[in-house]
Amino acid sequence: MNLKNPAFLFAILLLFWILLSNTLALEFLIPGMLLIVLIIVLFCRNCKIFDGAKTTPKAFIYTLVYIFVFLGELIKSNFDIARRVLSPKLPVNPGIIEAKTKLKSPMGRMILANSITLTPGTFTVEIDNDTLYIHSIDIDEEHLDDMSSKIIRRFEKYLEEIYD
């Protein structure tokens, strides 16, 4: 299966159109299909969403696992924020640290940065080639390298199976 095949893009866009119009009636489907063909003809050459994505069955399984890990981290991060906000002493110890990633493709890096933003106590401030600058709410000054690799590896071990 080739992800850069226009038919694949057509299927995804059609799914979004059906969800958006919330109906399967033919008078909604046909204008949608015409619009999708127009979009693919106009923009498909510059579309880089699937650059570097792998299509092995292993990548598919890792995508599913990744979604569940991500949702779990999102809920954990909210309880973490709630704990910090509600405690009277306000336990914050912030700082900006740097971390290196092994991912090559822009999309993989973007998903990694987005996931770091939504995990407990960290968010990405700046990406410079393979270096991510991460603001953390609770840093440990003696073990900065340990900390950054721990933050990165939590998602990278799944993402490097999905993206190059």
Binding site: I96, I97, Y133
Partner: peptide
């Protein structure tokens, strides 16, 4: 309270 700022260093 901020301890380290690697981005500013850079």
């Amino acid at each position: 309270l901020t301890k380290v700022d690697k981005l500013k260093d850079k």
